[in-house]
Amino acid sequence: MRGIVRTLVGAGLALAVVAALAGVLAGLGTKLGFWDFRTGFAVLRWSVYGALAAVALSGAGLLGAMHQRSARLGLTALPGLVIALAAAAVPLLHVRMVEAYPPIHDITTDTKNPPRFVALAEIREEAPNAVAYPGETTAKQQKQAYPNIRPLTVPVSPERAFDAARAAAAAMGWNIAAADAEARRIEATAETFWFGFRDDVAVRVTAREDGGSRIDVRSASRVGVSDLGANAKRIREFLAGVQERLPGAAPAE
């Protein structure tokens, strides 16, 4: 009996480590371009299956150790159980997030006239998600899910507002593709940490009749249906960075 318990514990730990490594490599391989995101998701899915199997093996080993009243075997089973639970929990949490967020991936402060992609248009034409704004259905879903995504009005000239926006974009760590001071337009690309998904950002600064400026932002994913709230979060963080540089800035009504 003790030999069976040892086998369960050892198999659980080995499978847990393999599943955890597969989960890491699923994203890393996608980010480095070894395979596309569909393959990465397939590897991730199988890593979850492996992790759940490891939970079962390690759990059975732990129960067996408790039955045998072997503290040493019980302690040996715990690492496999912990690693397996962590390897399964992260992807499953993302699945729950998909259910919590709307199936949209193009967010903007101006759904009637979103900032356009110019410098990045050709790259986005080759991406699965269209370069054109999806339209009214997406706008309605955005308004319901992210009602606080609004333009930013600032009591400074467009030139000064553009400089602040450019500085905030640089501070975000984005790859700046264009910063046209004459057109007061910024385009950049942000990359996600795990899978390296690329989301494109367009910033537009326009003059207001009162002498101030209005800043609009659009953040759109190149692939995927739901962005899990990433684009809305990015816009909020960017506009917060602009506000730090321009006292008196406020969201437009």
Score class of each variant (00 low, 15 high):
residue 243 Q to S: 15
residue 224 G to L: 09
residue 232 A to S: 06
residue 55 V to A: 07
residue 182 E to I: 04
residue 96 R to D: 07
residue 83 I to M: 08
residue 107 I to W: 01
residue 49 Y to L: 15
residue 170 A to M: 09
residue 146 Y to Q: 01
residue 184 R to P: 04
residue 230 A to G: 01
residue 99 E to F: 01
residue 40 G to A: 08
residue 91 P to C: 01
residue 236 R to G: 01
residue 13 L to M: 03
residue 65 A to C: 11
residue 42 A to K: 14
residue 142 Q to F: 11
residue 4 I to K: 14
residue 23 G to S: 08
residue 217 V to H: 09
residue 161 A to R: 07
residue 146 Y to P: 04
residue 52 L to P: 04
residue 141 Q to R: 07
residue 249 A to L: 10
residue 174 W to T: 05
residue 157 S to T: 15
residue 51 A to H: 09
residue 137 T to R: 12
residue 202 A to M: 06
residue 169 A to I: 11
residue 92 L to Y: 03
residue 122 E to L: 10
residue 219 S to L: 07
residue 14 A to Y: 11
residue 54 A to D: 08
residue 22 A to K: 04
residue 42 A to D: 12
residue 45 R to S: 12
residue 61 G to Y: 14
residue 83 I to R: 00
residue 226 S to W: 14
residue 202 A to G: 13
residue 64 G to N: 05
residue 148 N to M: 15
residue 166 R to W: 13
residue 155 P to G: 05
residue 150 R to L: 14
residue 18 V to Y: 15
residue 156 V to I: 13
residue 16 A to Y: 12
residue 252 A to M: 06
residue 13 L to K: 06
residue 31 K to Y: 14
residue 190 A to L: 08
residue 244 E to K: 15
residue 229 G to H: 05
residue 28 L to G: 04
residue 52 L to Q: 03
residue 161 A to P: 01
residue 80 G to K: 03
residue 201 V to F: 04
residue 91 P to Q: 02
residue 67 H to Q: 05
residue 203 V to R: 09
residue 114 P to W: 11
residue 1 M to G: 10
residue 21 L to R: 05
residue 236 R to F: 03
residue 128 P to Q: 08
residue 213 S to W: 02
residue 119 A to N: 02
residue 29 G to F: 10
residue 186 I to W: 08
residue 5 V to G: 02
residue 172 M to L: 15
residue 154 V to S: 03
residue 9 V to N: 03
residue 143 K to Q: 13
residue 100 A to D: 10
residue 224 G to S: 04
residue 231 N to Y: 11
residue 203 V to S: 00
residue 234 R to A: 07
residue 123 I to A: 07
residue 222 R to V: 07
residue 215 I to Q: 07
residue 99 E to L: 12
residue 168 A to V: 10
residue 236 R to L: 05
residue 31 K to L: 08
residue 150 R to G: 00
residue 2 R to Q: 09
residue 180 D to A: 01
residue 77 A to H: 00
residue 179 A to F: 10
residue 211 G to N: 06
residue 183 A to D: 00
residue 81 L to Y: 13
residue 92 L to E: 01
residue 76 T to M: 15
residue 95 V to W: 07
residue 127 A to P: 02
residue 184 R to Y: 08
residue 123 I to G: 00
residue 158 P to S: 09
residue 154 V to F: 12
residue 197 F to H: 03
residue 41 F to A: 14
residue 90 V to C: 00
residue 54 A to G: 08
residue 26 A to V: 11
residue 55 V to Y: 08
residue 24 V to D: 02
residue 30 T to L: 12
residue 64 G to D: 02
